[in-house]
Each structure stands twice: as C-alpha cells, then as structure tokens.
Design a binder for these strands. Structure first.
Lengths: 247, 247
DNA sequence: GTCTATAAGCAGATAGAC
DNA sequence: GTCTATCTGCTTATAGAC
C-alpha cells in the first residue's frame, strides 16, 4: 500500500515492514514482494540480508516478543507483596491491566500473532515453531505466570507449585477467552465484549470471579475495587498506554 | 498420500477428503490437487460439483459443525435441573466432559479448525467468515453457553442474563485455555497438561475453581466430586466416546 | 549493497474431448 | 459426469550487472 517512507537502512526498513505485515496478516499471507514494497527496498534485499522469508519471520518474532516484554512491566514488575490486602489489590490490577493489554494492544498484536501462527501450517517448520514457542513463553507467558503465582501464593501460602500454576491458568484463560473467541462471542451476545460499556463489566467480572474462587470475601473484594476505582487501575492503564506508545 | 479408497460418489468422496484435509491443515495449506488426489477424483471435479475451493470449504465447515452438535448431547441434553445439588453435579459433569471433548477430540478437531480459521486470512473472504462464525456459534458455542447459563442460574437465581453469561465465559475460557495455549503451556510446565496424570488434575481444578467462585462450599464440592468419582463422570465420558465413534 | 531480469514451480480455474 | 491439457497469475529464490 503506502510506500516511500524515509529509510535509514534497508535491513531495518525490512524489519519494520515485516513486523507490520506479519503481525496483521500472518506468515503465509504475506509475500516477499509485499514486504519489499512496503519497506521501500528491492526484492533481492530480503535474500541478501536474511537469507529467506522464513529467517526474516523468525527475527521478526524475536523482535516483537522481546519488545512486548519491555512494554509490560506495570503489572509484572514483581514488586514484593507484603500483605493479603496487597495481594488482592495486585490481582485486580493484574486482571484489569492484562485484559486491557490483550484486548486493546497498542503496538503489534502479539496475541493474534501467537495464536494464529501456533495453529497455522507455518509451524510445521521446526525452526519457526521453536522460535515462536520459546519467544512467547520466555517473553510473554512466563512473566505473566510468575506474577500470578506470586500473588496467589501470598493469598494461599499452603498451595503447592502445581496448584498455584493451575490457578494462574484459570486467570489467564478467562482473559484470553475474549481474544480467542472474540468473533464468536460478539455474534452470540450481539455486542463486542472488548468495547465499552461491556469491557468494564468483563474486567470487573474476571477479577471478582477469580478472587471469589480464591476464598476472598465479598467485603474484601468490594473494598478493594472501590479503593482502586479511579486511582491505581486507571493510573496503571495510563502508565501502560504511555509506556507502550513510546515503544 | 494414501489414495484409492472405494468411492461411491465423487461429490461425497470430495467432502470426505476435504473434511480430513481442511481440519488438519487449514484452508490455505490444502491445494485443490491434494484434495482431488486424496478423494481419488479428477481435479476438474471440484469446479464441477462445488464451483470453487472456497465453496467446498464452506460446505465442509457446515458439515463438520453440524455433526459436532449431534455428537455432544451428553452434557448438553438440557435435562432439567431440579435442585442446587444437581446443579453442582451438572457443572462438574460439564467441565469434565467439555475438557475431554476439546482436548481429546475423537472426530475432526473442530476447535483447531475454528481457532485457526478465525485468525487466518481466509476469513477475509466474507462468505467464509459468515459460514464459520454462524456455524460455530449455532452448533458449538450457543448450546454450550445455554447449558452453562442454565446451571449457573439454578445455583444463583438472582443473577441477570449478562452476569450469568460472563460466568459461562469464565468456565469456557478456563477449558479452552488448554487448547489455545497448549504448546506454550507444555513448554512452560515441562509437561503436556492434556495428558495424564496432569489432565485429571486439570479437570478437577477447573470444576473446583468455578464452583468456589459460585459460592459453593468446600464440603459440597468434595461430596459431589466423590459421589461422581467412578460413576457419572466416567460413564458420561464413555457415552461421549461411544457416541462420537459411531459418528 | 542494491539493482534488473529471470528461473522454476505451484496455485486455482477452465476449455473441450469423450 | 469425468477426463486431459492448458491458461494465467502468483510465489520464493537466484544470477549477474552495476
């Protein structure tokens, strides 16, 4: 489509274009001609700098995923959790921020990339599969999982690692549902749950549902949500947006 | 690959081959030549009977999804729920059976099909998108959602339709997590959660987590799971397998 | 390091014989 | 209704001039 942006460096221009095209359309659907045109470079440049379309894709995955990690320190900064009340608060902040980050990505949509590519035939290439899985796990899933396990074991210190892990899956699963099932839920409910006013209800529900399952009382939940209202949650979302936009 | 099965009818042979190939490899990754070869028919037969590869794919989606619905009446037969105790039991049966059906599909893997195709560029074709979304919602998501809403509103009759729907999302989201995140969780946990002995722990966890969030007491949960152990859950899984295999 | 030109192959769709 | 042969357009990758 649009071409002719200033290019400092053919290699970097290609990586930029690859990021934009691969994350929106997927590996198979993007042709090398399209990549070259978007980057404003010659077709042969891809072979010269990367050797193949596959290798360019792999480098793009690594770049995107490692940037994603830098962009989400907000609810993952592993600030120590001193009290039960703080753990409850951190879980709320986590759910609100994580849902925001997966439903309304500001940069490239890494969720779409990982779900699409992990099911698509491109992953029959073992190089692509390995790059995808290791990048996604190290830069995206593991930090999220670790933070959740930290929160959960503060709330229930008697829990083993396996049980805490399963609880982390339940929280992540509830959130990513709205990404993986989005078109189907939109049709089913006749509204897009990732848009307001439903989105706020979704955030509140996932936080509440998870806290109830963790044995937190209604009073504690209400108090925390009211305390956070208009303060930490919003400021955290703000911080996320600001941080992401400068990335 | 393998060819030369007896073909009663070229059209049916093509639909059979299309089901096998499209569900395992996806729309883009299957060529018309491959389809014709697998079906043991001539290449031109596809155009003659279906007009295009796209139309053959759409008919395949409809066929697969409507068959899927017939295969899962077990936890969706909408048998009336008379008591709170029965609602708790039905939720357990639902979670165990639903997880089994999505993690260990006996026929074509409809989950893989829907998640892959819904993110892939094939859905830029509005005909494919419409066929996919309406089939998935009508034959797969809505029955599951309705059953869950029925169970949840028995447990908490004061709930509105929106809140009950959000709880249904939470249950489905927890289950489908193990499908959509399977390769990543396998790497993260160094074991495949869809295989024993972890799979049983997952089933038990999702049921317990959801019931706790619905305010069901530990005693009620324990009693129900113990009662179902070796009886309803297993027999329901058996029924599912038997029913599916004859499909 | 970047360019043009082209190779080699596969895609979906079609024309026309039978 | 099924076949063969072919058309047109696309893909990735490469060879060689500059």
């Amino acid at each position: 489509m649009a071409v002719a942006e200033k290019k400092a460096n053919a290699r970097d221009a290609l990586l930029e274009a690859a990021e934009a095209l691969f994350t929106t359309k997927g590996f198979e659907a993007v042709s090398t001609r399209e990549l070259a045109e978007q980057a404003g470079v010659n077709l042969g440049t891809i072979q010269y700098h990367f050797g193949s379309k596959t290798q360019l894709f792999i480098e793009t995955i690594r770049r995107v995923m490692s940037r994603r990690r830098e962009q989400q320190p907000l609810f993952l900064d592993n600030r120590p959790i001193a009290s039960r009340a703080q753990a409850i608060e951190e879980l709320c902040v986590f759910v609100y921020s994580f849902l925001e980050s997966v439903c309304h990505p500001v940069g490239p949509d890494v969720c779409k990339l990982m779900y699409r590519e992990c099911l698509s035939p491109s992953t029959e290439d073992p190089d692509i599969f390995e790059a995808l899985v290791s990048s996604v796990v190290n830069e995206f899933i593991r930090p999220v999982d670790q933070r959740l396990v930290q929160i959960v074991t503060t709330l229930q210190p008697e829990l083993g690692a396996d049980e805490a892990g399963l609880i982390a899956h339940s929280v992540i699963g509830q959130c990513s549902f709205y990404v993986t099932h989005r078109p189907f839920v939109t049709r089913l409910r006749h509204c897009d749950c990732t848009c307001e006013p439903t989105f706020s209800a979704v955030q509140r529900h996932v936080a509440t549902f998870s806290l109830r399952a963790l044995g937190v009382s209604e009073v504690e939940i209400e108090t925390t949500l009211r305390r956070l209202q208009g303060r930490a949650l919003e400021s955290d979302a703000q911080r996320f947006k600001k941080f992401s936009q400068r990335g």
